[in-house]
Design a protein around this nucleic acid. Structure first.
Lengths: 260, 260
DNA sequence: AGTGTAATATTGTCTGAGTAATCCCAACGG
DNA sequence: CCGTTGGGATTACTCAGACAATATTACACT
């Protein structure tokens, strides 16, 4: 009977905030893919099969697949099915994909790659922000700093404020493409902070680093902003690496890529 | 009768390679959004209304909207409708979004922003590639260079080879996140090349610049690779700017952002 | 005036049927 | 012997119509 099914499904769905059914399916499948449970080249079950197994309609399943396809994770064609795309086609910087990656267990190599990209982009963005920031954006950064001052990074509010700071800074760069990296970088900032707190609560106060960036941007000093931001990301990476040290393995792996 | 409708639709769809119906709808709507015909905050017509107007089923229209939502262009909620998201949430580096941007008329400012990001990322990627490239990746770059030698950039094959070169270089960086920028950068490379050719056919041979990058990567010289790639992108930007010069306006606009 | 509650509009989900695209292979012709 | 072309089967794709969930809005009640 649909009654029991319906209520059970509703409950299971409620754990995530306001994702619809197709959203949760997309997330579940997405996690299975980025975590390696489904490998590139694998073919997912047919629509009728899969939707039966998940106890949902084909409509919902198809919309989920459409989402995954839009993010480059899968590709579906008649007669052949829906196949997982090679990792090179994945939109790794898509906020959802990134959150799915962090949902399971972030690979050490992948984490290093992410910090590598942040160290490339964010300092340059800070330098641009120093040249182009408006008063409004400057205020937003200041506001975010106040939030970080009030709430610890262990709290949700604190992480939100941290994200806001980076978000405002990227926005101040005045480059639409850099701005579009905001949500991705924000997710990364948030998750890595959680990792840090998990094993190594609050060892170093990150506020001074952030203030230095803000001061440099306010002073319209691109070089100082670049240096301060690079330093900030560097320290964040160090903290993250330290909190994950227990499983220290061979150092050679840290440079090779994540490909199979 | 469905007969006439069906054939007409099939023909109209055939101009794009293998996009399904929902894909073409997503593209059409996407172009309308990124081109500014629909502005952030606007609410799209209801599903029944829109699907009626487009002569397609609600299913197809809904899947199209799901695609757009997955790319951050829209957000839909019951009782309120599907509303265009603020530009800051758009996934500007998504290959599809980027191609939709170029499909209409690329904004001068946006073009400048894109080259700005390329000048930040690609040189660093080249430096990383110089440190990490494998023989296989080196061969791929060489292969691409051969392709560029044989076919002019005015031809499809030439542009493909150009894309392959950048693609192989980014892949050689060994950073999964940088790799994921490949398709976006590839689209940008291709479109800007077309713009160049349109007004200013084949003024400068880009091959030597590419060879310099290749040589530096092959020699495992990160600094040289960085410099060579920066030079390459810089010259590409100059060429593009020159071919669009006729409408030269005030220089101050080149720094301000694209926001409304 | 504030608060809870019901009406309502819109997206969300389901079902079941039929269509169209693609791969595989076999038959054919070079 | 190899390449090409046609049929057949499988799968995603599209359609139509109904019902459910949800969030906004308005209204009644305290």
């Amino acid at each position: 009977m649909p009654n029991k099914k319906s209520s059970a499904r509703t409950n299971a769905r409620a754990r995530r905030k306001s994702l619809r059914l197709h959203g949760t399916i997309a997330r579940d499948l997405g996690v299975l893919i980025v975590s390696g449970r489904y490998k590139p080249g694998d073919i997912l079950n047919g629509e009728i099969d899969a939707s039966d197994r998940l106890q949902v309609s084909r409509t919902a399943y198809r919309e989920a697949v459409r989402i995954l396809a839009a993010k480059g994770l899968v590709e579906s064609r008649p007669k052949v099915g829906t196949r997982v795309s090679p990792q090179a086609r994945w939109h790794m910087l898509d906020p959802d994909v990134l959150s799915w990656i962090f949902e399971f267990e972030p690979d050490d190599t992948l984490l290093a790659n992410l910090f590598e990209l942040r160290k490339i982009v964010e300092p340059e963005a800070a330098a641009l922000a120093a040249l182009r920031r408006t008063d409004e954006e400057l205020q937003a950064m200041e506001q975010a700093l106040k939030g970080m001052e009030q709430h610890s990074l262990a709290s949700e509010a604190g992480r939100l404020a941290d994200q806001d700071f980076h978000s405002a800074m990227l926005r101040a760069s005045g480059n639409a493409f850099i701005v579009s990296l905001t949500s991705g970088i924000g997710a990364a900032v948030s998750w890595t902070t959680i990792f840090k707190q998990r094993h190594n609560p609050l060892r170093r106060d990150p506020l001074p680093d952030h203030i230095k960036v803000y001061e440099a941007v306010k002073a319209a000093d691109p070089k100082a902003a670049h240096a301060a931001m690079l330093n900030l990301v560097d320290l964040a990476q160090l903290d993250t690496a330290n909190s994950r040290k227990p499983k220290a393995k061979s150092a050679t792996a840290s440079i090779s890529s994540a490909r199979s």
